[in-house]
Lab assay of single mutants.
Amino acid sequence: MFYPNSPQTSPQLTQIPYGQQYAMMQRQIQQPYHPFATTEPQARLYPYHYQGPIQQEQGGFITQQSTAASPQYVQMRVTPVDQSIMSGYPNQTANGSSSSSFNYNIHPQQQQQQQQQQQQLRHHAMPVGSVPLQDDRYRKQLIVNYLAPDVTSTDLHELFSRFGELDGARIIYDKQTNMSKGYGFVYFCHAEDAKEAVERMSGYEFHGKWLKVGYSTNPLNIVPSNSSPYVHAGSRGAAG
């Protein structure tokens, strides 16, 4: 039997160049792979992502010199942007860049009308829970959420009447099932009393439920100042 490094198959040491006398086997001759043993700084910083320098080929596509990437890492192929796409944008300079302001050559009167329309939209648009300043009635009506099913309009009136005089209180019921929808409205005579009720009743436990109280901004629920107070009856038909 002959071994790869046996004296019968191995040459004389004098015939082997210096430095390879003890590297006779194939696994010894093959050098191990060192990912950080390279002179390129990109490979030292990113050993798993770097795959060699990027070269520009004919046709405008950018390719990489090395083989496919590892399945664990996804390499994105980048193509140059066609400058003709950006030619339609206004205020574009000769080098292809555009300024931040756009001039669509709008007539001054049209621009003024658009600004007025935007101001009107901001004036009428009102986020949930906010209180408008032009109508004091919005500051007097509250919406009470997360009410228990057994709470009546009379219970709601008695709960909030300790903060001040009320114009009314009612629970909203479903017309088909005649069941409470879980929320109601309270109408105060003074805005200061309503503000105190919002601050003190939010998070209050009532009939096993934690109440959420806020201003009601729905104009359909506003009680006119010259109208008669609501009837605080315990029956659902009268309260709904």
Results as ranks from 00 to 15, higher is better:
V128H: 13
Q51L: 13
V144T: 02
P127T: 06
P11V: 15
R200C: 13
P149G: 07
P90S: 13
A191T: 07
Q64H: 11
A194S: 01
V223L: 10
P35S: 09
Q58L: 15
N105R: 09
E205W: 15
M24P: 03
A197C: 06
Q64D: 08
T152F: 07
Y104N: 02
S100G: 12
S99W: 15
I222L: 04
E40V: 11
T152V: 12
L220N: 04
K181Q: 02
Q117V: 12
T63L: 15
D174T: 01
P127S: 06
S84Q: 13
P219Q: 01
A233E: 03
I29T: 06
E165V: 11
Q26W: 15
R44Q: 13
G168D: 01
R122S: 09
V223T: 10
E158D: 12
A37P: 14
M86G: 04
Y50L: 09
K209P: 13
Y46M: 03
H49S: 09
I16N: 06
D135W: 06
N145W: 02
Y18V: 05
A148Y: 05
T152W: 06
G19K: 07
P41Q: 10
W210E: 01
Y89E: 03
S98D: 11
T63W: 15
S101P: 13
D174C: 09
Y48N: 04
A191M: 12
M126H: 05
L211H: 01
K140N: 02
T39D: 08
Q114C: 14
S100I: 15
H34M: 14
N103R: 10
K212T: 01
E40L: 10
H34C: 12
I106T: 08
S216W: 00
V198D: 01
Y50V: 09
P47N: 10
E199R: 08
H49R: 05
T63Q: 10
E192W: 11
N226F: 09
Q176K: 04
G59P: 08
R77F: 15
R137D: 01
P47M: 14
S202A: 12
H49Q: 09
E158S: 10
T63E: 13
A238G: 13
T67I: 07
S6I: 11
Q118C: 10
Y33G: 05
Q110P: 09
A43K: 02
N105E: 05
Y230I: 05
Q31T: 07
G59S: 08
G129W: 12
H190P: 04
H34F: 14
V128K: 13
P224T: 05
Y50D: 08
S84G: 13
W210R: 04
V151K: 01
A125P: 12
V186G: 00
Q109T: 11
S228L: 09
I85H: 10
S84N: 14
G88Y: 14
Q176T: 10
I222E: 01
P149V: 05
A233H: 12
T93V: 09
N95K: 02
P127L: 09
Y18P: 06
L166A: 03
V186N: 01
S87N: 06
L142G: 02
G203Y: 02
S101G: 12
G234F: 04
P35C: 15
P132V: 04
G208W: 01
Y215G: 00
F61P: 03
K209N: 00
Q8W: 11
G234L: 05
S153H: 08
P11I: 14
N178T: 11
G19Y: 11
V151F: 00
Q65P: 10
G164V: 01
Q31N: 10
I106F: 10
G60P: 10
Q111F: 14
V198H: 03
G88D: 06
N105C: 11
I106R: 05
L220D: 00
F206D: 01
G96K: 04
N145Q: 00
S66K: 07
Q21E: 06
P17F: 14
G60Y: 15
Q15T: 11
